[in-house]
């Protein structure tokens, strides 16, 4: 028997105690002064109406019905004075006297009330929204007071990866990197300095790359590092993965007034 399905069909009673409790309340009597005969009658009637409606009845309800009938019969019949035989144990409900039943009902009632209290707390609590970024909008504040989000960062990483793959693909036909390095870096540092002086302002890294091939990117990067080491340029990056700006040392990083470029243009 599927109890879950049963619970859905008859959501009112969470179990035989719940049903009994309801009946007692309806009768407007105190748990401790319930007439077993009466309550048994009502309980059975309820079970019967469930049967008529063709509702599945959970076994617990039937066990309770049997228990009630046994209690009732025990009260009607004179007690057999057979010592030691004991009462056969009701394994599931373990109710052997009206007192047992009252006790259990009382205990159940307390927890039912506690459950009611929790339900009220749940209702109140559902009205309070707690901060949750759901992993989407976590903003990291970097030291330079600029920011990026994880996801922005991830997108840029993807972009870098894509370009690397492309570059690597085109690089296949190009000579190996160590061969390029020697002669190319010096060429490239000269080219970078010339270009910076020409423009007289900070330039983004990508301005120094003509063909986006892997060796070219690497050589340009090494050249920039070399110039930095020689204290000829500054490299500026306002945020992680952000564009890299290249500035000549001793010049203004960004053109404040649109000034005429240096007089040494073209040489």
């Amino acid at each position: 028997m599927n109890k879950e399905a049963y619970t859905i069909k008859l959501p009112v009673f969470e179990g035989p105690f719940d049903l009994l409790f309801h009946l007692i309340k309806k009768a407007e009597v105190d748990i401790w002064s319930v007439s077993i005969a009466e309550i048994t009658e009502q309980y059975l009637e309820y079970i019967r109406s469930m049967q008529e409606l063709n509702l599945e009845i959970a076994s617990e309800f039937l066990v309770m019905a049997a228990t009630l009938l046994r209690l009732k019969s025990k009260m009607l019949l004179p007690r057999p004075v057979r010592e030691g035989e004991g009462e056969e144990e009701e394994l599931f409900l373990d109710i052997n006297s009206p007192e047992d039943l009252f006790q259990r009902l009382e205990e159940y009632r307390q927890f039912k009330e506690a459950a009611q209290w929790l339900k009220e707390r749940e209702r109140l609590q559902k009205k309070i929204f707690l901060r949750s970024t759901r992993g989407e909008k976590m903003i990291l504040i970097s030291r330079q007071d600029s920011y990026y989000t994880y996801w922005e960062g991830a997108e840029i990483l993807v972009e870098i990866m894509r370009r690397f793959c492309e570059a690597a693909a085109t690089a296949a036909a190009v000579p190996e990197i160590p061969q390029v390095e020697d002669f190319a870096v010096k060429d490239r540092t000269a080219f970078i300095l010339r270009r910076l002086k020409e423009k007289g302002q900070a330039l983004p890294f990508r301005d120094f790359i003509r063909k986006e091939t892997l060796p070219e990117i690497i050589v340009t990067f090494i050249a920039l590092l070399e110039l930095t080491r020689q204290k000829k340029i500054h490299l500026l990056q306002d945020r992680a993965f952000g564009p890299i700006l290249v500035v000549l040392r001793g010049s203004r990083p960004l053109p404040e007034k649109k000034e005429a470029p240096g007089r040494d243009r073209r040489g």
Binding site: K3, E4, E14, G15, P16, F17, D18, A58, E60, M64, L93, D94, R104, E107, Y108, F111
Partner: peptide, 9 residues
């Protein structure tokens, strides 16, 4: 035992 119902689910 308190609820009088099976509680596994």
């Amino acid at each position: 035992s308190i609820r009088g119902v099976k509680c596994e689910h």
